[in-house]
C-alpha cells in the first residue's frame, strides 16, 4: 500500500452511487471476448432447453410420431413423409435434434437442482463451522477433508450402488459429492471476514448470531461461492452424464444427454457416429460455456488479482 496515493492512482477505484460492485463485475467480465462468447452461448443453450417443446421438430417421446422405418438415418436425411432430420435419427427413428433439446432440459435441471441444494447445505455447514469454531468446526471440517480425499466419481458410484437408481437418487448422489466443496470454500472465506472490523462492530451491537451470519457474513463470502458454484454446475452435469452413460444414472424414461450418448455407443463402431456424436457436442458446448464463464468470474472476483 502506498502512503499517499496520487489522485491518478485512486481514480480506477469504484466511484460511489451509480456504479455498484455488481456493475464493476459486469464491466470487467465484459472486457474478455472469450467470456462474452461463453456467456452468450450459455444463454442460447438455456433458452433452447427452456423452449424445447416449441423448438424441436417432433416430440421425441411421443411414440405416435416415430417410425422405425426412419431409424438410423444420417444427418440431413428425410423421412418417408418428407420431414428433414438435421442431425439424423437414432435406432427408433427419433429425430436427434429433438432428442437433444429434450435431453438438454433434463441434464440442465438435474445439474442446477443438485447445485442449488448442495450450495445451501454447504453454506450451512461451512458458515456454522466458521462461526462456531472449536470442536464443532474441527469435526465438520474433518468430515469435509475425508470426503474430498476421494474423487467425486467414486463417491457417486458408491452412492448409486448403495441407494439404487432413479432421478432423486442421482440428485442425492450429486449433492453429496458437491456440498463439501462449498463448505470448505465458504469456511475459508468466512474465517477471513470474521477477523474484519465490520463484523466486530456487528457483534458489538449485540446482533443475534443468526443475523450476523446471514446478513453480514454470508453476503461477503459470496464472491468465491459464485465461482465454485458455476464450476460445480458444469461438474454436476458432466458427472450425471457419466453416470447415465455407465447405465447407473437417470432412468430410460428421462433420457439425459449421457443416456443418448450411451444409446449411440453400439452404433459408433459401425460408423453411425451421429447418434453419439451430436448429444456429446451439446453436452460439451454446455460444459465449455459454463466453464468459460466461471474462468472469467474467477479472475474478476479474485481479490488477489484486482488491479
Amino acid at each position: 500500500m502506498m502512503a499517499a496515493p496520487s489522485p491518478a492512482a485512486i481514480s480506477p477505484a469504484p466511484p460511489p452511487a451509480a456504479t455498484g460492485p455488481l456493475r464493476r463485475v459486469l464491466v470487467e467480465f465484459a472486457e474478455d471476448p472469450v467470456a462474452i462468447t461463453g456467456a452468450v452461448l450459455l444463454a442460447l443453450i438455456v433458452l433452447a432447453a427452456l423452449f424445447a417443446p416449441w423448438l424441436s421438430p417432433q416430440n421425441p417421446y411421443d411414440l405416435a410420431q416415430l417410425d422405425v422405418m426412419d431409424g438410423k438415418l444420417p444427418p440431413g436425411a428425410r423421412s418417408a413423409t418428407g420431414q428433414l432430420f438435421w442431425l439424423g435419427t437414432d435406432d427408433q427413428g427419433r429425430d436427434m435434434l429433438s432428442a437433444i433439446l429434450y435431453g438438454l432440459r433434463i441434464s440442465l435441471v438435474v445439474g442446477a437442482a443438485s447445485t442449488v441444494i448442495a450450495l445451501a447445505l454447504g453454506l450451512a455447514v461451512g458458515l456454522t463451522a466458521a462461526y462456531a469454531g472449536g470442536r464443532l468446526e474441527s469435526v465438520l471440517m474433518r468430515i469435509v477433508d475425508i470426503q474430498l480425499s476421494f474423487p467425486a466419481i467414486l463417491i457417486a458410484l458408491i452412492l448409486i450402488a448403495v441407494l439404487g437408481q432413479g432421478t432423486g437418487k442421482v440428485i442425492a448422489a450429486l449433492v453429496t459429492v458437491q456440498w463439501a466443496y462449498y463448505a470448505r470454500t465458504v469456511r475459508g472465506a468466512a474465517l477471513v471476514e470474521k477477523r474484519k472490523e465490520y463484523l466486530e462492530a456487528a457483534r458489538c451491537l449485540a446482533l443475534s448470531p443468526l443475523r450476523i451470519v446471514l446478513r453480514h457474513l454470508l453476503p461477503n463470502c459470496m464472491p468465491p461461492m459464485i465461482v465454485v458454484a458455476t464450476v460445480q454446475v458444469a461438474a454436476a452435469i458432466a458427472l450425471e452424464a457419466t453416470l447415465s452413460f455407465l447405465g447407473l444414472g437417470l432412468p430410460i424414461t428421462e433420457p439425459s444427454l449421457g443416456l443418448l450418448i450411451a444409446n449411440g455407443y453400439q452404433y459408433l463402431l459401425s460408423g453411425k457416429y451421429w447418434i453419439s456424436f451430436f448429444p456429446g457436442v451439446a453436452l460439451v458446448l454446455t460444459i465449455v460455456s459454463i466453464n468459460l464463464v466461471a474462468d472469467r468470474l474467477r479472475d474478476v472476483l479474485n481479490p488477489r488479482l484486482t488491479r
Partner: peptide
C-alpha cells in the same frame, strides 16, 4: 489455457468415444 479449459470440460467418456470413432473406426 483455452486448451486446458477444453481438457476440463470434455467428459472423459465422450472423448473416449470420439477417440474410438476417429482412430479406430475412421
Amino acid at each position: 489455457m483455452a486448451g486446458s479449459i477444453l481438457g476440463f470440460s470434455l467428459p472423459t467418456f465422450w472423448v473416449g468415444l470420439m477417440l474410438i470413432m476417429v482412430f479406430s473406426v475412421m
